[in-house]
C-alpha cells in the first residue's frame, strides 16, 4: 500500500519526500482536530458527572 503510494508520487526524490511529509501532516491534523474531537465524547473514558 505505502509502496504503491510512494511509486505514484510525482517528481524527483526530494519532491516526493516533501509531498509524503506534507500528506502525513495533513492526515495527522485531520485526525487531531476533526476526527478525535468528534470521536472522544462517544467513548466511555471520561464521564465525570453524576
Amino acid at each position: 500500500m505505502y509502496g504503491w503510494m510512494w511509486r505514484h508520487l510525482p517528481g524527483p526524490l526530494v519532491v516526493r519526500l516533501f509531498t509524503a511529509i506534507a500528506l502525513l501532516i495533513v492526515i495527522v491534523a485531520v485526525l487531531l482536530f476533526v476526527v478525535f474531537p468528534w470521536l472522544e465524547p462517544k467513548l466511555p473514558f471520561n464521564d465525570v458527572s453524576v
Binding site: 495527522v28 485526525l31 487531531l32 478525535f36 470521536l39 472522544e40 473514558f45 471520561n46
Partner: peptide, 14 residues
Amino acid sequence: VVVLLFVVYTLYVT
C-alpha cells in the same frame, strides 16, 4: 499508530 495518536490526543492535546 492511529490509536497511539489518539492516546496522545486525549492526554495532551485536549
